[in-house]
Amino acid sequence: QAPETKIVDKSRVACDGGEGALGHPRVWLQIPEDTGWVECPYCDCKYVLKGSKADAL
Rank of each mutant, 00 (worst) to 15 (best):
Q1V: 13
Q1T: 13
A2W: 13
P3Y: 13
E4R: 15
E4Q: 15
T5D: 05
T5Y: 15
T5K: 06
T5A: 12
T5Q: 08
K6N: 08
K6Y: 11
I7P: 03
I7R: 08
V8R: 03
V8H: 03
D9K: 06
D9C: 13
D9A: 10
K10W: 10
K10L: 08
K10P: 02
K10H: 12
K10G: 08
S11T: 12
S11R: 12
S11K: 09
S11E: 07
S11W: 09
V13F: 11
A14W: 13
C15K: 00
D16L: 08
D16I: 10
D16H: 07
D16A: 09
G17L: 01
G17F: 04
G18I: 05
G18W: 06
E19W: 09
E19G: 14
E19N: 10
G20F: 07
G20K: 05
A21D: 10
A21M: 11
L22A: 11
G23W: 14
G23Y: 09
H24M: 03
P25T: 10
P25W: 08
P25H: 06
P25L: 08
R26Q: 05
R26K: 08
V27E: 00
V27R: 02
V27N: 01
V27P: 02
W28S: 00
L29G: 01
L29R: 02
L29H: 02
L29E: 00
L29V: 02
Q30L: 13
Q30K: 08
I31H: 03
I31S: 01
P32T: 04
P32E: 06
T35C: 06
G36F: 04
G36D: 04
W37H: 01
V38D: 01
E39I: 15
P41A: 05
Y42R: 12
C43I: 01
C43E: 00
C43L: 00
D44P: 14
C45W: 15
C45I: 15
C45F: 15
K46M: 06
K46F: 07
K46I: 14
K46N: 07
Y47W: 08
V48F: 06
V48C: 12
V48E: 07
V48D: 01
V48P: 10
L49C: 14
G51M: 04
G51N: 05
G51S: 04
G51L: 02
S52Q: 03
A54I: 07
A54D: 06
D55T: 00
D55L: 01
D55F: 00
D55V: 00
A56R: 12
A56E: 12
A56I: 14
A56P: 14
A56W: 14
A56K: 13
L57P: 10
L57K: 06
L57H: 10
